[in-house]
Amino acid sequence: MLSRRSLLRTGLSLAAIGMLQACSSPLRRPTSPTAAYPTMPLQNQEITLLACSGSLPSAAQRQHGIDRLQQAGFDVTNREAIDRQYQRFAGTDQQRLQDLNQLSQRQDMPRMLLAGRGGYGACRLLPDIDYARLCPMLKEAGTQIMGYSDFTAIQLALLAKGGVGSFAGPMLYSDFGGRNISPYTMQQFIQATTTPDWVVRSQTMQSVNDHGEGIFWGGNLSVLSSLVGSPYLPDIRGGLLFLEDVGEQPYRLERMLQQLYLAGILQWQRAIFLGDFAMGRIVDAYDAGYTLDSVIAQLRQQLKVPILTGIPFGHIHDKTTLPLGYPARFNSSENGLELQFSDYPVHSTTGLTLENLLHNNL
């Protein structure tokens, strides 16, 4: 009986050639959208858990996340990863690294790699990931890689070292395992991972009327800025850079943005997209009137690049799912913002319904 990998090789041979070539070079300007990632076969419903960062302290919450995914028809593997704890981390550096590198020893790749949670620690793994073996396998199989927050370090490194895209989207602990799971988040997760040409819209009025295209990339601002000067930050020119963060005072956000500006990264982009920064009650310690709006205004004075706001993603309850490292088009106006994504891996909808994910909601 043929393995899934053999079947994929037959069906995706032409696309795989282009993808394997891309795996050895950094991303630059986007190419025209192609059908490189058709809908995958029905039989693979495996989600492999990764715990690259902080520990997941509540056993009940961990189990709730697994239960919900199983209700939706997924086979959840590598569960032991989310039970580990070493200092503040979900296991030692070697254990967390092994979760990634052992994938290259498999015959068939999973449908999805799902991050357990964020926190801190993923950056410690970057030098020892086996990119040369892992990246071509992930791309050939069309494996979806899902997470955000500290997991941004893994996502950016895979993109920089192997041209492997991913998804900024819900994680096991805080989203699938959380109390009062968000119907909006789950519906967006389903649609983004099963629908070609996914469209995200925001009704936030934009400061400029503009349109364009590029590789949509980025993630957590703190993590991204920490990788400046390293080989793990993608070299993307003419891209659509997305940023979000949590728990940072306005001046700290500006300092990180200034770091990207001084490094020339912001100037290289076609447009910059700001998600949610979860400011809540955070007030600048020196000037209560210095807000996130002040930071954005300063950045707009410095840059000719359009800065667009209102992307519904970040450390928030209701979040969309965003393909990262794939082509996208945008349109902005006083009526809002629209992003259309293309050329990312999608999978069958069989068994994956909002009703199943919300069953026995806490």
Results as ranks from 00 to 15, higher is better:
310 G>L: 11
122 A>R: 02
148 Y>R: 00
6 S>V: 13
357 L>P: 05
72 A>V: 06
246 V>D: 06
131 Y>D: 01
7 L>G: 13
120 Y>E: 13
59 A>V: 13
285 A>Q: 14
94 Q>E: 14
140 E>F: 00
249 Q>C: 06
333 S>H: 03
156 L>Q: 08
149 S>G: 07
143 T>I: 06
358 L>M: 15
171 M>E: 12
11 G>L: 15
269 Q>H: 05
87 Q>F: 05
319 K>I: 14
122 A>N: 03
300 R>W: 06
150 D>E: 12
132 A>V: 06
248 E>I: 10
239 G>K: 07
256 M>E: 13
18 G>F: 07
254 E>T: 01
336 G>N: 06
68 R>A: 11
18 G>L: 07
31 T>C: 02
270 R>N: 11
289 G>C: 02
349 T>N: 12
29 R>G: 10
7 L>D: 12
336 G>P: 05
149 S>V: 08
286 Y>V: 02
305 V>I: 10
11 G>K: 13
280 G>Q: 10
265 I>S: 03
96 R>Q: 04
313 F>Y: 14
41 P>E: 09
275 G>S: 03
89 F>S: 12
355 E>R: 11
299 L>P: 03
337 L>V: 04
184 Y>D: 09
302 Q>H: 06
102 Q>V: 10
117 R>C: 14
168 A>K: 05
137 M>Y: 00
161 K>Q: 12
318 D>K: 01
358 L>E: 01
43 Q>K: 11
210 D>R: 14
312 P>G: 06
80 E>V: 07
250 P>F: 12
14 L>T: 13
127 P>Y: 02
168 A>C: 11
124 R>P: 01
89 F>H: 15
280 G>V: 05
29 R>N: 12
132 A>M: 08
212 G>V: 10
7 L>P: 00
286 Y>G: 05
127 P>A: 01
17 I>V: 14
59 A>R: 15
157 A>C: 04
159 L>H: 01
300 R>Y: 09
317 H>G: 09
288 A>H: 12
41 P>K: 03
119 G>M: 02
286 Y>I: 01
28 R>G: 13
203 Q>D: 15
332 S>Y: 07
149 S>F: 04
318 D>W: 00
185 T>W: 10
204 T>R: 15
275 G>D: 11
313 F>N: 09
118 G>W: 00
121 G>E: 00
116 G>I: 05
128 D>L: 01
225 S>P: 00
357 L>Q: 08
173 Y>P: 03
